[in-house]
Structures are given as structure tokens and as C-alpha cells.
């Protein structure tokens, strides 16, 4: 997938069971392991042009194929967990892998390695843009870029919603109705009634939880009959 379409929620249908939390490295060896982690993640951070999925692939090659810090299954399982966690999925993934290798210090070091180069370059690029933002040529270029960003945003929104709707469709008609209702309802809640975004998100999560729970209860009840 392309950069804009990568880290939406909902791709986490492939959940595994249980995550092994034991760090691979005991404390006495933590120094060199931390340094190695930092170096590897710094390299990944510098190369992370081209966005989420390309970067995830590079991480996988580094930690699964080259270093064998995780198995392929553990990698997939960790990525699924990242879909359900707050914030940027790639940072979540970096934290989980860093902790597997060298505990919490490992997680911190890996995150700093990933973000140091990319955040510095991003700030530099923004500063450059800000210097020239009032030139008419840059302004007309931006006039073209904004609609393109909107178009890619539409794709992102649909790629976030599609796997969730597909999963509901596989379950039942009722489930699909509830899911479509949540999708349209939350858009309307913002557009028409200007409700606070956090409130809409929490309500949608609760409705989702209650309906899923109620459906399993009903299924269990039918089976007992």
C-alpha cells in the first residue's frame, strides 16, 4: 500500500494469542544491545522515505530476517496489537520490538533512533516551506496539492472502514447495519451537530462493544436452547 493508505485502524483482524514479554537480553549485556538497537533504528529512520508500509517492510527485514529477534508470527501479532493502540502504528511497533530485545530502555532507544532523523528532516523541510510560502508560484503549487491530499484522504478513510464493514458483513445483517450506522452517524454527529470528536469516538466504541457482547450472549443463548 502507498504511504497515505497505511496505518489506519482496523487491519488488526489477524490477532494471535498472548505475547511473549520476556526481553531477549539480560541486563549485563544491555549496553551493547542498546547501542545496536539505536544504530539499527537510526538507519531505519534515515531511510524511511516512502512511508509506512515501505518502512514496515524494512523493519521486518532487519529484525526478523537479519537479526532473528522475532519470528514472522510474532511480528504479525505485534503489528495487529499496534492497530488497537493509540498513536502512530510504526512507533508502537518500534516500542514492542525494542522491548522484546532490551526491555523498556530498548523501547526508548529504538523510538529515539527512529524519530531523530525523520523529525529533524521534517522540521527542516517545513522551515524551508515557511520561508517561501508567500511566493505566488508556491501558492499555486499548493493549490494543486491540497485537492490531491483530499483525494488521498478519501482513499485512506475508505481503506480504514472497508475491513471493518467486511468483517461485520461476514457476521450478520444486524452487525452490518450497526457498523454502517456508526460510520454514517459519527460523520453526521460532527457535520450537523458539531459534537466534540472525543465524545463521538467514545460513544462509537461503547456502542461497538455493547452490540458485539450482546450478539455473543444471544448466540450462546440460542445454542443452549
Amino acid at each position: 500500500m502507498t504511504k497515505f493508505l497505511d496505518d489506519g485502524p482496523g487491519a488488526g483482524d489477524t490477532r494471535g494469542n498472548g505475547v511473549v514479554a520476556t526481553p531477549l537480553v539480560v541486563l549485563s549485556q544491555a549496553g551493547p544491545a542498546l547501542w545496536l538497537l539505536f544504530r539499527i533504528w537510526l538507519q531505519l529512520g534515515v531511510q524511511s522515505f516512502g512511508g509506512g508500509m515501505a518502512t514496515l517492510y524494512m523493519i521486518r527485514r532487519a529484525v526478523v530476517d537479519q537479526r532473528q529477534w522475532l519470528t514472522a508470527a510474532e511480528f504479525t501479532q505485534d503489528w495487529a496489537l499496534c492497530q488497537a493502540a493509540p498513536g502512530i502504528n510504526l512507533i508502537c511497533m518500534t516500542i514492542l520490538i525494542g522491548r522484546r530485545v532490551a526491555g523498556i530502555p530498548g523501547a526508548l532507544v529504538a523510538v529515539i533512533g527512529l524519530l531523530l532523523p525523520s523529525v529533524s528532516i521534517t522540521i527542516t523541510m517545513t522551515a524551508l516551506y515557511a520561508t517561501f510560502r508567500d511566493s505566488t508560484l508556491l501558492q499555486s503549487a499548493l493549490h494543486g496539492v491540497v485537492p490531491a491530499t483530499v483525494g488521498l484522504g478519501l482513499l485512506l478513510s475508505s481503506s480504514m472502514a472497508r475491513p471493518l464493514l467486511a468483517a461485520s458483513w461476514r457476521e450478520s445483517w444486524g452487525s452490518l447495519v450497526v457498523s454502517s450506522g456508526l460510520l454514517v452517524g459519527s460523520a453526521l454527529a460532527l457535520l450537523l451537530w458539531h459534537l466534540p470528536v472525543i465524545l463521538v469516538l467514545c460513544c462509537a466504541g461503547l456502542i461497538g462493544a455493547l452490540t458485539a457482547w450482546q450478539q455473543t450472549l444471544r448466540k450462546a443463548y440460542v445454542r443452549h436452547d
Partner: peptide, 15 residues
């Protein structure tokens, strides 16, 4: 269900 509801709301609002 909670994660799914959250994801749907995010998609709708994002749009």
C-alpha cells in the same frame, strides 16, 4: 467490538 466501533467512527469523522 470497542476497537471496531472506534475505527468506524474515526473513518466517518475523517471523511
Amino acid at each position: 467490538g470497542f476497537v471496531r466501533g472506534l475505527g468506524l467512527a474515526v473513518s466517518g469523522i475523517f471523511l
